[in-house]
Design a protein around this nucleic acid. Structure first.
Lengths: 192, 192, 192, 192
DNA sequence: GAATAAGCGAGACGGTACGTCTTGTCTTACA
DNA sequence: TGTAAGACAAGACGTACCGTCTCGCTTATTC
């Protein structure tokens, strides 16, 4: 009975169950196969959902992935920037945890897949930022450091974060053997 | 007598003509359609070559692209870092020309495609660096600046370059409206 | 309520239109190109149907041909055995019309193609018999002759028909210049 | 020294070794894979011969097969028609040995393959007759029976043999379970 | 002996078709 | 109206052979 609030159009309503099944399946397949071996058919099968249901609600593979990202289905718990007052130490710690994250066996290719997804859709890029808490968390921490006089007042924060994250991304794409001090060096490249 | 070293095995020899036709076609299609709409069949047709000839010599789409990259078929003439003695001005000028490059109508999506390709194959990532002359040219310029005392002696050059280029890459992936001073801001984020 | 027996599973139903288009196209191409130059891709193109639709319903080229045979798409109207009471005259007349049939310009190679198809698939052989009405029509006529005392009571009818048709098949495969009295001679070889 | 007969042109001479290797390989592959899975490349590889050598001397797969047939590479020792004076018994014995031949495990599909080959090339049909000794042996035996008054004087021998062999061929194509008395019945269908 | 012609192995080449996979749209039956 | 099931046209995948062609070597004949 559509008793309350407004007109509630006729017919069945979107199945939340189906929606979650799709996003869960996407997360599972993304982790095991990577972005480019992900297929709509595969997601539908894995989710026990019809393809049409996916196409009805999402416009493309990348849209599904973007949604899965928002709902935190794609990433393990992501690191947050600590705040000890020492901006350099904090950034190094954070960067180190990122480096450790992708160094874990299962997470190999995770960044690569996320970047590949971001290449396909600007939306994913944006949401990736949000999901990683980069814009929110990191920027905030940087701005605090600026306010504390640890960094110059006219530092272009957006670009600073981009350089930091971009450096990490390029490092990930290279798939070299993990350098032990890469986190420290990367931060030092920006804070010299 | 086969001129130089070695026995020059029997049988017809690889057709340089076919090889170049493939790489040229790859360059042409990459520019117009981007990496992910590139197909082996399309390349073969465009090159007037049989699919088998491609599969005989390359193992995958990304291998073809990597080769095309080496042979300079994918990129328009890429900017070099000027050397006026002023490292900050030089980097800004170089970064600005990169920004201008991707701002041109035809080059929309070029970086996106290259990054997508790099996500698929570590080889492409490596060769991308080489092709862009990044490692060579930029690093050299940075090292000169370090030697000249304009930059700290212990600057981690590799990471510095990665941050610079990574920042540019992330900017490109965001497809925001081109900010006029993004080049200057990005360099300033690193040189403050 | 699904009218008759059983549950009529969910999902779209097989397109009769596509099915007929495939069989029609098969008939057309079989006539013009013969069995061995027949290709699944050719059929699909000619029928305006995707290859997958063919592979969904038929397991091989010969399966399609067998089906086309049942649906009478491969053969022009085939002769029937007359019944004048004179078994010898009737068989000669029938055999003569078979000989005339393959002597027509367009039908050159028709028998060859059918036999080639039968070599590939036992199914086609069986259905070929059915389609030609050989088992049905000829056997019936022979049995009538046996009943009328024109042929011995213990005549092995199946083998008699096989010998008759087999003789015709071998004659067709030889592609010699058409002998004018071959029909009469063949029947006389069996009824002496 | 090209002493005798004519001008013996310059250059190397055809390698008998290669020729035999090809025909042997053809026989081996024909037996294991059947006519339609036989490939020129397969023969070349199996024979340790280059494709060009095959194409230099034979015009097609069927030409190779026809040659192999002549050189007795395709068939095991084939039965001959006995001559006991009783034409009916002799034909039954011969037909029975044919039936037994194709009933052997390895020879399954042998007739099918030969017939398929004959469909492709009239040449093969002719040579098949020769190789089987059908025209020679069987016809001779039939003619002897005619001369002995066991068969009518005006019997069309060619057609009689065709009917006999054709009946056997159709029986083989049907791949039914082997009927024990099929040889006897087939002969009886012709000699009633 | 050279020079000249084949023959031969190896194998690259432009093609055609194979049978499979996925895309995005559609139809059907049920809820 | 939403949904699972699933058929459909389209088209790329990577493989297998086709028949032709170049190679570098060997073998035989002729000058």
């Amino acid at each position: 009975m559509p008793a309350s609030a407004g007109v509630r159009r006729r017919g069945a309503v979107r199945s939340e169950e189906a929606r979650m099944a799709v996003l869960d399946a996407t997360g599972r397949l993304f982790a095991t196969q990577g972005y480019d071996h992900l297929t709509i058919e595969g997601i539908a099968a894995q989710a026990g959902v019809s393809k049409q249901t996916i196409y009805r609600w999402w416009s493309s593979k990348s849209a599904v992935v973007a949604d899965a990202l928002i709902e935190d289905k794609l990433l393990p718990d992501h690191p947050v920037v600590p705040d000890t007052g020492d901006i350099r130490a904090d950034l190094i710690a954070w960067m180190q945890s990122l480096v450790d994250l992708v160094a874990e066996p299962g997470n190999d290719g995770l960044v690569r897949s996320l970047v590949a997804a971001a290449c396909e859709s600007p939306d994913i890029g944006t949401r990736l930022n949000d999901a990683l808490g980069i814009t929110a968390t990191v920027s905030t921490r940087i701005e605090a450091a600026v306010a504390a006089g640890q960094l110059p007042a006219d530092l272009p924060v957006t670009e600073f974060v981009r350089a930091l994250v971009g450096g990490f991304v390029l490092y990930s794409l290279e798939r070299t053997e993990p350098a032990p001090d890469v986190a420290e060096r990367l931060v030092r490249a920006l804070l010299h």
